[in-house]
């Protein structure tokens, strides 16, 4: 064997050894495809958006000098802030409704279903087999002027004229979004409930608590990680949703996503749209922080 072959083999072994010895190195190499996708697919666009928010629109061109004008516009015109607050209110309602509806479902699958849990979990994802748009349209059909609800109520004689408050308002948006995001709330709650050691529930009963107090003092606090995950999974994406409000929201159900969309579309003011997006991001981040802090305190207090 030649000298160079031996030495290259030694170097190869050294690299191998270093690779196997370093936990971090192995971790990064495992992560690298995702990491690359995250950097180019998420961090880069965010950077672009952030930069854009400090530029100005001049018809079809950008004025590429640093300016706070978009942000001062955001605060100068109350409409943006109002719509952002309304979006947060709607998303908050959606989150509350989704988690409240998802919890019993997740509880049922985790505690009451003994066999074929997988079948039930698959059944939950069945709505996702159709497109999101189609499901929103389905709600339009349900709630519309001559929709399922109205014609149904009319045929049994409860109403003579169709109800007009069903569609094109924040309630319709809340209802549609809550339905659309249900599975995202059920699954994390189910996972956290499933993980709870059943003997803990027996221990609580044994120590004198009834079924309801066992739920309050053991099941609920132990499933909080799932509830928090579900809340974030529903709240964060729905704040910026624009498909549902534009289809079932009407003028009163407009959300901040619709404003951003129009800035990048008809209104054609990309920098202002970028600035509004950044403001939404900051607000959501702040809200999530407050939420996490609040649930942390809640868990300590229940304990």
């Amino acid at each position: 064997m030649s000298r160079s072959a031996t030495s290259s083999k030694t170097v190869g072994l050294a690299i191998r050894r270093r690779f196997l010895a370093s936990e971090a190195l192995r971790g990064f190499s495992l992560l690298s495809p995702t990491l690359l996708a995250m950097v180019f697919g998420l961090a880069m666009p965010l950077l672009v958006l952030f930069t854009l928010s400090f530029w100005l629109q001049d018809y079809v061109d950008f004025i590429k000098t640093f300016s706070w004008k978009n942000y001062s516009d955001f605060f100068a015109k109350p409409i943006y802030g109002m719509i952002l607050i309304k979006s947060i209110k709607i998303s908050g309602m959606v989150t509350l409704a989704t988690v409240l509806l998802a919890y019993p479902m997740a509880y049922f699958i985790a505690f009451r279903i003994k066999a074929n849990k997988l079948v039930w979990l698959i059944l939950i994802t069945v709505p996702f087999w159709t497109s999101y748009l189609l499901r929103v349209f389905a709600w339009k059909v349900m709630l519309g002027y001559n929709g399922v609800v109205n014609s149904g109520l009319k045929s049994i004689g409860l109403i003579s004229e169709p109800l007009e408050f069903l569609l094109y308002n924040p309630t319709a948006v809340t209802l549609t979004l809550a339905h659309a995001w249900a599975a995202f709330a059920i699954l994390p709650i189910y996972v956290s409930l499933e993980k709870i050691d059943r003997s803990l529930l027996e221990a609580a009963r044994d120590l004198g608590e009834n079924a309801f107090m066992t739920f309050v003092r053991v099941t609920l606090p132990l499933s909080m990680p799932g509830v928090i995950a579900a809340s974030l999974l529903v709240f964060i994406p729905t704040v910026g949703d624009y498909v549902t409000p534009s289809l079932v929201g009407g003028p009163s159900g407009i959300m901040i996503g619709n404003i951003i969309q129009s800035m990048f579309g008809k209104a054609f003011n990309w920098p202002l749209g970028a600035a509004i997006s950044v403001m939404v991001m900051l607000t959501v981040t702040a809200m999530v922080c407050v939420f996490l802090w609040g649930t942390h305190r809640f868990r300590r207090r229940v304990a």
Partner: peptide
Amino acid sequence: PPNHRPVNMVFQNYAIFPHLDVRN
């Protein structure tokens, strides 16, 4: 029901509540 019986149990896996400290 178990919560009204004058007996208490030490479980096989102890069933210590993970979200509570020893005092609680």
